[in-house]
Write a protein that binds this DNA or RNA. Structure first.
Length: 726
DNA sequence: ATCGCCACCGTTTTT
DNA sequence: CGGTGGCGAT
């Protein structure tokens, strides 16, 4: 594919794009309509922005939006991107097809799946479902019961899925990466083959199946390949370092007529290799697509220089170096801070106190995040925040649809969409009195073998103890099969399920009931049951879905993995202690480097302020405290790149759990009111320093230009402003 | 043989 | 909190 011979600067510019903001490389990435482009760039360099601009550019040059396919990692990311593109180039870009690999795969398979011999009604299963199947099989095959260190269901699913994603026989993978488990190889292979059969027999499809079948569709069905390749004349991929081999093949095949692919990624941010992601995909890209234009972006548009210096130093020690040294023109001189707490509790208090302080100084809560390696590392902090009456949103923990009661209700609906879904049958039958794993399995096998599952259920020879329960269940399905509106179906299920709910979860029934109300709100927006079920499996709604935007402006607590691609003014990274970070099972060589990149990802989320915290003492499994040092990754850093915070004072911040504290807004009397201020007043602020009032805003805010930090909008209720001179 | 209840334990990361 | 193992009841 010929690249342009004349200077790219001769080309017309995309509508509404301010080219002052684009450096020459970005400009080159944006202004090409043909051929493959690979953008390799560091954190905060505006990779995603080049994609948005290119969408705008393409549409400006006559490419119809419905022919553009934007593949992103999460559905939120694609929505965000389309929204940004919409601001550049009116709203026609909403017709751009944006989504995740899995979402697009689902769409295509529902449409063309029959070419591969699929039943059109397959059910998408998530991780927890997959683990559930392994559990069922483990007991029914009698595998691993006696041997003590048989791998957990989670590890087995990781291995099975890893084999698919790396296009590698499971056997090789076990010898390669799980050698310590190789004594169980036969059992593992046994489980794998039954797992595959189970999914096939019951019309279930996991995340990996969606991708492999998409690939098969492209590779084996010429008419589908042609249809898809001409439908999407331009394909864009974000976060390319997180793609696996199957995804790389999909892109190659989907673009086989035109090669119009643009991929952006950063090898230093590859943190998903445990899931089969392979950042060598980036290196391979130019070989797969000859005549690729490679564009490197080295300017960072996110973080201040002190933060960038530290993050450069984190990655400096990496063994695989493809890394570029990033620079920034953003001003700021606040060095990252390293805080050594005595223990987790003190760490939590420090973070809570700092957040409160920052918020009082005018930083909105949704511009602050706390990041950590594993979900449970934030438990102490969550308690401390809750005790202090501070609201937060936790990401990367349990999703709404992963809780047992929600799964219960969804099972009924999933059966309606796919009567062969034996996972769901099993769930429902187990709820009945006197039916345990064995009985449930007998019934589900009978159902799986029959042509009419509902008739089989009705006619199943019931034992005396559970005859009544089975009859009620049969009756429920009679009613359900008469309807097809999702909200109505939901209500019918709830009539049946609510008594069960009270009985099964007697202790926290009200809380679970509230979750179900929320689910009801979500389902109300759907007209098709199938769409609803697909969405809940592919993109589980979080517990805050449906809240008004102003209520969502919360402090974020997140695992580092779930924070990928996001940014905040202030970032705290907690739990940076030996034994916590890197994860103890990571050994120098393999996983170790990925853990280092993980810390890099965490630190590069910060725009202005970065706090790195660790507890000196950690509670060990045997409930004793043990002195641990700081994370080895921190020890490697040049000490002049950060400021150390010592906690010589025993009670650094007051504990919010031991004292009654009023909510933030009511706690502090306003120091200054609008009446005391006027345009031109000189003021001082404990955090931003000296400045001059530029403008009075609405009821209780004021714009101040600070000497060192530029323009800030401060809320008088929170900010500790002092008037120096009127 | 199967079910239900109680007590105990440990927690990678996930589209 | 969720998974597991033991034990008594059916």
């Amino acid at each position: 594919m010929p690249t342009d011979t004349h200077s790219s600067l001769d080309r017309p510019t995309p509508a509404g794009v301010n080219l002052e903001q684009l450096n020459e490389s970005q400009y080159a990435a944006v202004t090409t309509t043909d051929g493959p482009v690979l953008v390799i760039a560091g954190a905060g360099s505006g990779k995603t922005r080049t994609l948005v601009y290119r969408v705008a550019y393409l549409m400006d040059h006559g490419v119809a939006p419905e022919n553009i396919l934007l593949l992103t990692f999460t559905r939120k990311a694609s929505q965000e991107m389309l929204w940004r593109a919409g601001r550049l180039l009116n709203d026609s870009c909403t017709r751009v097809v944006g989504g995740t690999f899995h979402g697009i795969a689902n769409m295509l398979l529902r449409r063309y799946g029959s070419h591969l011999g699929f039943d059109s009604s397959f059910t998408i299963i998530d991780r927890a479902d997959a683990e559930g199947i392994v559990n069922l099989l483990k007991s029914s095959l009698g595998v691993g019961g006696r041997g003590k260190q048989f791998p957990s269901k989670r590890i087995i699913i990781n291995m099975i899925s890893g084999a698919v994603n790396k296009s590698m026989p499971l056997e090789d993978l076990v010898y390669d990466q799980y050698n310590h488990l190789s004594e169980h190889l036969d059992d593992i292979l046994h489980l794998q083959s039954h797992y595959l059969d189970f999914k096939r027999d019951h019309g279930l499809m996991d995340y990996d199946d969606l991708l492999t079948n998409w690939k098969r569709l492209l590779a084996e069905v010429p008419e589908a390949r042609t249809a898809i390749s001409s439908r999407f004349s331009h394909i864009m991929v974000d976060e390319y370092q997180d793609t696996n081999l199957v995804q790389a093949d999909i892109i190659r095949l989907a673009a086989y007529t035109h090669d119009n692919v643009m991929a952006v990624g950063d090898d230093s941010q590859s943190i998903y290799s445990f899931r089969g992601a392979d950042f060598f995909n980036i290196m391979r890209f130019p070989k797969i697509f000859p005549d690729t234009r490679i564009i490197k972006l080295e300017e960072n548009y996110r973080s201040s220089q002190p933060i960038l210096s530290l993050t450069n130093d984190i990655i400096r020690n990496a063994t695989d170096k493809y890394t570029k040294t990033l620079f920034t023109r953003i001003e700021g001189d606040l060095k990252p801070r390293l805080f050594a707490a005595a223990d987790e509790r003190q760490e939590a208090r420090f973070v809570t106190g700092k957040i409160r302080q920052l918020h009082e100084n005018g930083i909105p809560l949704d511009e602050i995040a706390v990041l950590f390696r594993s979900g449970f590392h934030s438990f102490k902090l969550e308690m401390e925040l809750a005790a202090g009456g501070m609201d937060f949103e936790k990401r990367g923990g349990l999703k709404l649809t992963e809780s047992a009661h929600i799964k219960d209700v969804l099972s009924f609906l999933r059966i309606l969409a796919n009567p062969k879904d034996n996972m769901s049958w099993n769930r429902i039958l187990l709820q009945l009195e006197k039916i345990g794993p064995k009985t449930a399995q007998k019934i589900t096998t009978a159902i799986a073998l029959s042509d009419d599952p509902f008739a089989t259920l009705a006619g199943y020879p019931a034992g005396a103890a559970w005859k009544k329960g089975l009859a009620e269940l049969t009756h429920l399905f009679v009613k359900l099969l008469d309807n097809d509106s999702p909200p109505v179906l939901f209500d019918i299920v709830m009539q049946y399920y609510e008594p069960l709910l009270q009985q099964i979860y007697a202790d926290d029934y009200p809380k679970r009931k509230k979750d179900l109300e929320q689910l009801k709100g979500i389902i109300a927006g759907y007209e098709s049951l199938q769409t609803f079920i697909d969405d809940t499996a592919l993109d589980p709604p979080d517990t805050d879905a449906g809240l008004a935007p102003e209520d969502r402006r919360k402090l974020v607590l997140s695992t580092i993995h779930s924070a990928k691609g996001l940014e905040w003014e202030v970032v705290f990274v907690i739990g940076l202690a030996e034994g916590r970070f890197p994860h103890p099972s990571a050994e120098p060589g393999g996983q170790w480097e990925e853990e280092r990149r993980l810390l890099y990802v965490a630190a590069t989320r910060a725009k202005k302020r970065l706090y790195l915290c660790y507890p000196r003492d950690l509670m060990m499994p045997d409930r004793t405290f043990q002195r641990v040092g700081m994370s080895p990754f921190l020890r490697e850093l040049r000490p002049d790149l950060y400021d150390r915070l010592e906690n010589d004072r025993p009670s650094f911040e007051p504990s919010f759990s031991s004292a009654k504290i009023l909510p933030v807004s009511g706690k502090r009397p306003a120091k200054v009111s609008l009446d005391d201020l006027a345009k031109g007043c000189a003021v001082t602020h404990p955090f931003f320093g000296d400045g001059v009032v530029k403008r009075l805003v609405k009821p209780r805010s004021v714009d101040v230009v600070f000497d060192k930090h530029g323009l800030k909008t401060l809320h008088l209720d929170y900010a500790k402003l002092k008037v120096i001179r009127k």
